[in-house]
Each structure stands twice: as C-alpha cells, then as structure tokens.
Nucleic acid binder design. Structure first.
Lengths: 143, 143
DNA sequence: CAATCCGTAACTATTGACATTACAGAAATT
DNA sequence: AATTTCTGTAATGTCAATAGTTACGGATTG
C-alpha cells in the first residue's frame, strides 16, 4: 500500500490557508514550506478547487477555504486528490486464467473485502476535521 | 493509495494451495492461473514461507499451508508480502521547511491519524480468514 | 544418481511520480 | 486600459518502483 505525497501536501495547503487566514498563501509560499515545486502546489490547488474545498484566485493570491474548518475532514481532502475506488486503491493482477476456478473467481472474491478496508479508512479519516488539526497545531506551538 | 499486485497474488497462491490440497501446486501451475511470471510466484512463495504461512519444498512441489485455514487471515497474508509501517503505507513529503510552523509540524501532526487508518485496515483484514474465502469460493462453484 | 523445482541474483522494460520550464488567461492594482 | 501578479495546464525530463525474463545453485524426491 502506498499513497502519493499529494495527500499530505493537500493537508499541508489546507492547514496553511485555514490556520493563517490573514497571510497571503501563494503557490510559491506554500511550495517553500512544503519543500516541493510550486507547480505541484498549483496542481493540488486546482484539485482542491474542483472539490469545492479551496477558493483559489488568479491575481493576488486571495486563497481561502470554502467551508468552515470543522466541516472539512481528512477524507474530503483525500478524495480531492486521490481516487477512493477500490480497484484503484488495490491493484489486482490482471490476465488471470479463465479456465482455473481460482483465477476466474479471485477478483469477485476479494473485491468486497477490499472495499471494506477502503471504507474503514474512510470512516477513520472522516473523524478528523481540519479544525482538529489546527487545534493540535496550535497546541504544539503553545503547549 | 495503491497496493502492489503481490498482495492479491499471495491470496491467489494461498487459495490454490489450501483449496485444492490434493493437487501439486508448483510455481508454474500457479503462474499459469494467476497470469504472471513463475519467478513472481516463487518470490511470493519465499515471502509466505518466511512468514510461516506456506511450506514450500524444492523437489516435487510439495507445497502446503502451515496453519489451519481458519487461523490464517488476510492481514497475515498482507504483512507477509507488504510493510504495515505507517510511513511506508503513506508516503510523506520530505524536505519540509524547518522555519515554517506548518512545515516543521505536519509530519508529527498527521502520523497518528495515518496510523489509525492503517490499524482500521488491519482490523478489517483480520476479520477475514482463508477459510472464509475458500467457503465463498466453493459457493461460487456450487451455488 | 537423475529429474524436478524452489530461491535468488542480474538485467531489462515499463510505469508512475515528481521536477522543471513555459505560457495563456484571470484578477487586482495603478 | 495597462501592468503586475498569480493560477491553470501542457510538455518534457528524470528518477524510483514494479514486473518480466534469463540463468543457475542447491534442495528434495524417487
């Protein structure tokens, strides 16, 4: 199992925008903090925008979240940048034999259990809101 | 999130060996059914062997499971072929800024929640035994 | 001893992720 | 309206991980 870095980067963006609303968060500023190329940030900007989580505007970096931070969960952010389809999360081996009993049934056999696993992650990530993370961050700054 | 095909292949192997104990399951036979190269099967053989799930023997393909099928879970098979470490499952962005508040705290902030997600998958996979899958397979053959 | 088959190394091919450059177009400032 | 700033996106290059393939030593069986 391996998740691309786009997910943590997306969380990073949301944290910076929501946690410090008075500051101008351009792709370059966030890129500096995240240690990645600004274009990567802009790509994630775009995905978060399409998902209705982030309001990005060309011009003067008027970036802002579109919902209250306690109405945005980790799962919202996850699905904004990555697929939640079971067969994208778990890569099955194709070209299985159609004549073998196992080969012709393995996919249908595994799929429901893999979907259960994805739903378990969904349930876990849905518990955590952006506001939780902001609170935890402030706690780390001012213990 | 993306899991390598080694996990479903490992399940495929275990199903064939445990579901049809009277038949000789060499790497070539399984490779034919799974539609992959025999060496891939032998590599997974080796990992399942090291994990104490499969007894593979050079010579005449005397492959057999080492524990009863109802004492082997999907999680056992998963950990035999893939890492369950949070930071291997979820790939974090390195090179974050040490001077930025978010950059210097994002890893510590995310880690517990990512670990929760991994544990949720673990709990789900631990519910499903190899015997469950065999039963479901037989149901598909003889409905 | 001979045949079979696992375990593993070495090499290649392919795929996906990320970095980088470049530029069109939108928004705000003047 | 012109200028500046910044997003959105395409094109290209680079690198790492995965899978395919060949090869061979060594273990086991008969």
């Amino acid at each position: 199992m391996r998740v691309s870095t786009q997910f943590p980067i997306a969380v990073h963006i949301m944290l910076m925008v929501a946690g410090f609303p008075e500051q101008k968060m351009t792709s370059e500023v966030v890129a500096e903090s995240a240690g990645v190329n600004p274009v990567i940030i802009r790509n994630v900007f775009s995905k978060l925008n399409n998902a209705g989580l982030l309001d990005t505007k060309s011009g003067r970096g008027k970036t802002a979240i579109m919902r209250p931070a306690d109405e945005i969960t980790l799962w919202d952010i996850y699905t904004a940048v990555e697929s939640d389809e079971t067969d994208e999360v778990f890569k099955l081996h194709q070209n299985t034999s159609e004549t073998c009993v196992v080969g012709s049934n393995i996919h249908a056999l595994l799929l429901p259990h893999l979907t259960d696993a994805v739903n378990a992650v969904k349930a876990e990530f849905s518990k955590v809101t952006l506001q939780c993370l902001i609170d935890e961050l402030y706690k780390k700054i001012n213990p």
